[in-house]
Computed example of a mutant assay.
Amino acid sequence: MTRTFGPPPSAQEFEAIARTAFARLPAEFAAHLGDVVLAVEEFADADTLAAMGIEDPFELTGLFEGVSLTEQSIEASGQMPNRVRLFRQPILDEWIADGHDLEHLIAHVVIHEVGHHFGLSDDDMHALEDMAD
């Protein structure tokens, strides 16, 4: 189902699209996701925005929270599972502003945040995206 125009999906529909994108990650990556939790929220909370130095909540579409695979050690046992948070309203805002396919946009944010789980920086991911274009 491609959404390039029309009414925005409900919160439940949006989450279903995000979970489908997460489930479609290639097996070689999915095998290393372990207990990564996917959460969909309307916006990042004020504490998260403040910690990141972001004033406009529409500027943050997703966030990886946890310890990347490259930084994990046995000493870090007992921590909460890694989490990928998607922020619905900022993603919908970007969808409306740019006219991209919504499923593709959501998958892009999911992949970007999962990349942090694997230890990739924003610069690493932008370089990979540039090579793919």
Rank of each mutant, 00 (worst) to 15 (best):
L86C: 09
D47Q: 11
E113A: 08
E65K: 04
R83H: 00
E15F: 01
D47T: 04
Q79W: 07
P26F: 06
M1H: 12
M52N: 12
E129K: 10
A16V: 05
H104E: 15
T61G: 14
N82H: 10
V110T: 09
E28I: 12
L102V: 01
E129H: 11
H108M: 05
I54C: 04
F22W: 15
H112P: 07
A31K: 11
L86E: 12
A97Y: 05
F118M: 02
E75G: 14
F58Q: 14
E94T: 15
R24P: 04
E75D: 12
D124P: 01
I111G: 01
P81I: 05
A39F: 04
A44M: 00
H108L: 07
E94Y: 09
M80A: 15
F64M: 07
R3H: 15
M131Q: 11
E65T: 07
G62E: 05
H32P: 08
I74W: 11
H116P: 04
D56R: 08
Q79G: 01
L128N: 05
H100W: 02
D122N: 14
E15P: 01
L69T: 07
E13V: 08
M131D: 13
F43R: 09
V110W: 00
R3K: 14
V109S: 02
P90G: 14
W95S: 08
L60P: 04
V109R: 02
F118V: 02
D56N: 15
V110K: 01
L92D: 11
A39C: 06
A30M: 03
A51G: 14
D98R: 14
G99M: 06
D133W: 08
L92A: 09
A132K: 07
E65N: 01
A97Q: 12
I96H: 12
E103S: 07
N82K: 07
V37F: 03
